[in-house]
């Protein structure tokens, strides 16, 4: 796999699309963590997740992309918006969305990025993945899940049930623990 690495100077169309989508995801993610408005953060998160779904598509993982759109964009973001509403968060610009920890956090984050990027670039400079359309289709993934990954899948369903019950117990005030 490593011997036939095309040059970085002549990107394919898929690569260009991926890089654009990646830049979009990174940019909107930056806006998520820097915006002054809470609701805007949630909305930028939608953009970020959508861009990521596009990335998945380019990487031929189409089923994952649709699930991403459905669950993240459809469910998680809605949940987050409900959370924002229920906690009576201020709508509009607020100056105090950042804690005093910001400078240290920036240092740590930049250092993390530097380390990760350095290591990743150093490690995968010669790795090339030829894209094969249809490899991540719903049929392929479905057979993989239900042939090879059935047991984790079932366990996961139990986990989801437990999380569901837990969320209900935590959020309802008329259920009290045994004293």
């Amino acid at each position: 796999m490593t011997e036939a690495v095309p040059s970085y100077l002549s990107p394919t169309g898929q690569e260009i699309v991926f890089l654009l989508l990646g830049a979009m995801a990174v940019g909107s993610a930056l806006l998520v963590v820097t915006t002054r408005q809470l609701v805007h953060a949630a909305l930028w998160l939608v953009v970020c997740f959508g861009a990521l779904a596009g990335c998945y598509l380019v990487l031929t993982a189409e089923f994952v992309a649709w699930v991403q759109v459905l669950i993240y964009v459809g469910a998680v973001i809605v949940l987050l918006l409900f959370g924002i509403m229920l906690t009576r968060a201020p709508i509009g610009r607020t100056a105090d969305l950042d804690s005093g920890n910001r400078a240290v956090a920036a240092v740590v984050a930049v250092a993390t990025a530097a380390v990760l990027v350095t290591v990743v670039v150093d490690g995968f400079r010669n790795a090339y993945a030829p894209l094969d359309p249809g490899a991540g289709s719903a049929g392929e993934l479905g057979s993989a899940i239900f042939r090879n990954w059935v047991l984790p899948f079932e366990a996961l369903s139990v986990l989801l049930l437990a999380a569901l019950i837990g969320a209900i117990v935590i959020s309802r005030t008329d259920i009290r623990g045994r004293d």
Binding site: G22, V26, L38, L97, D98, F124
Partner: peptide, 26 residues
Amino acid sequence: MHVVYPAVVSALLFSIGVYGVLARRN
């Protein structure tokens, strides 16, 4: 597709997430 591209994008996203966890108050 060079593996470096998604890896770098992922590393950057992760770092941004770290920043958000550490710096945000809400």
